[in-house]
Write a protein that binds this DNA or RNA. Structure first.
Lengths: 338, 338
DNA sequence: GTGAAAGCGCTAACAG
DNA sequence: CTGTTAGCGCTTTCAC
């Protein structure tokens, strides 16, 4: 025998039909325990592996799901990927990773992968659907798509998220409680909802405390290290720089702190900084970063569970699933100097 | 028409044969520019997507490659993934990400994915082949597999790597040049070759400088943050702790520095630390980490290029491709105190 | 409990 | 240049 063995080869070797082999291999109850054992044994002996393309074609399923993120480079998503994968594996699904790099065309490509049979369902963490006019409209209604971490209003897809507004408010309230009054905010990319939510939490806390938000106190970033430094630079070029900064994610917070150090400002001595995400390294950073912790593991697990439910035709929550996020107070926040 | 459109539907709508549609869609030269245009247009109109399972079954290729790493959580691999993906995409391949978490069973599963048609080729960065007795022996000789970053002696697969011994030696020589004599090394997981190479570089540099390696000066780690802290703790429980540490990767170096801070030792004032990898955050860390920079982008690009060559039946380098790694001297190294 | 036969959607000979 | 035909390897009726 040459080439990879097929079901037919096993059948021939055993003098049974291909159908029986197929059934035995898939643990069908329609086959004797004994035949099953014999089939499994020769399959093993022949080093047989079922051809996935053939199976997928026949069953019209890929047993794979797609997880699409804005930036694989962000370790934050990786932790979620891990729990998504664990949950998926337990149900027999594998996980394909999609990375958009914020490129709308690539988002469209990933949507296409649902339709062309690459994957059966999808977890989206990109904060927006491709082209408002809508690649997702090509998907059948009720398509197995779950939105995690971000919000896509009116999409009709289930959501798993945290309350970004409340978490941000709590972070800023912490700074206010320490006595800060000149508090700035480095935003994520706008007008994405997640970024807007975090900014809104900041604004709410400021307003409730009766604090003004001076011109230039809301510089924009894009969640990347460098943009945190750049935004921070803009802040400290102001006539009245802040004594505290709430940064929309940890990575930018690292960049901001790095910049502050460069211009000779001590954190938290001169300036307090709060981040958002609680990355793996945030605690080992110096000073250990005060930040908002997100329940990454739960987010992934819940999102995947809902997706699995959709994939098996079950009911899914119509209301967003909102998980708790908590402020972790560490070493980058302190009372203002004066 | 109900359900997803197939090639047949387009053919019917246009009054041509399915074969023509297939050809038009794949830009075959065997079809008029005009027919091609018409086909493309109705395909677009019908919102057609070719079924990948059917295509893969027919062509016996998946146009996907698998990149398997030890730990997706390590940002180091992500940068490589990005360049692998860019190179793969340019050639029409997509990339599947495999994560073994150092579990040999999972490595075997990924090998199986080559045989069951999930992927056409594979880039391995796990440092060892599954079960010495050998899952890879199930693969046909000359299987499209490239080993990156690590070495699998005698496997016969092409390798893309850096010279870990030389790079480590350079790192330790830097510490020696600063005047350190009590230099310790926190290793990666042994007996993996990459970890062993880095340790050997350390030993060579020490020996050449005529420096002894005291008992306990080579604590083991596993490349994770926490193990760096733990190994460091062991080091500073010694009667004569080191004045400098060469750590086998940045993540453990972060952990070690964090621990040193915890026990009141200043870096680099009291202790110098050198890492390995040059992670994205290493420069933003405080103090900025002195470390060995690896050419991540080139590693990914080269590995994928070689894989593509194998996939198209071309010749591949028999000798390992060795890329340069360079020491980046930053803020965690200084002369010893006394 | 097992076998025979059909067909998933596509591409690649082979004719014309 | 286009159409006809066959078949990739598997699963799943439908018979028995």
């Amino acid at each position: 025998m040459t080439g990879r063995p097929k079901i037919k080869d096993i059948a021939a070797a055993l003098g049974v039909s291909p159908a029986t082999v197929s059934r035995a291999l898939s643990d069908s109850a329609l086959v004797t325990a004994e035949t099953r054992a014999r089939v499994r044994q020769t399959a093993e002996a022949l080093n047989y592996r079922p051809n996935v393309s053939a199976r997928n074609l026949r069953t019209a399923r890929s047993m794979a799901v797609l997880m699409v993120v804005r930036d694989v480079g962000n370790p934050f998503y990786l932790d979620i990927l891990k729990s998504v994968e664990a949950t998926a594996r337990a149900a027999g699904y594998s996980v394909l990773m999609g990375n958009t790099e914020n490129d709308p065309e690539r988002e469209v490509e990933y949507f296409d992968m649902l339709r062309d049979g690459h994957a059966d369902g999808m977890i989206l963490m990109t904060g927006k659907l491709p082209r408002a006019d809508g690649a997702h409209h090509k998907l059948p209604p009720g398509a197995p798509v779950v939105i995690a971490l971000e919000t896509i209003a009116g999409s009709g897809f289930p959501h798993v998220q945290i309350d970004n507004v409340a978490a941000s408010r709590a972070a800023v309230e912490h700074l206010i409680a320490l006595g800060h009054r000149r508090i700035a905010h480095i935003t994520g990319p706008l007008p994405e909802i997640m970024s807007a939510d975090r900014r809104d939490g900041y604004r709410q806390a400021m307003q409730e405390a009766g604090l003004a938000i001076p011109e230039g106190y809301e510089p924009n970033g894009n969640y990347l290290l460098h943009s945190g430094a750049a935004a921070c630079e803009a802040l400290f070029a102001l006539a009245e720089p802040p004594t505290a900064i709430f940064v929309a994610n940890d990575e930018m917070a690292f960049g901001a702190i790095h910049h502050l150090r460069g211009i000779g400002r001590d954190v938290p001595g001169d300036v307090s900084v709060v981040g958002f995400d609680d990355l793996y390294l945030s605690e080992a950073f110096y000073p250990p970063l005060t930040t908002v912790h997100q329940p990454r593991f739960d987010i992934g697990r819940q999102a995947m569970s809902i997706l699995l439910k959709m994939l098996s035709g079950g009911q899914v929550p119509l209301e967003p699933v909102v998980l708790p996020a908590t402020l972790r107070i560490r070493g980058t926040t302190a009372p203002p100097k004066s």
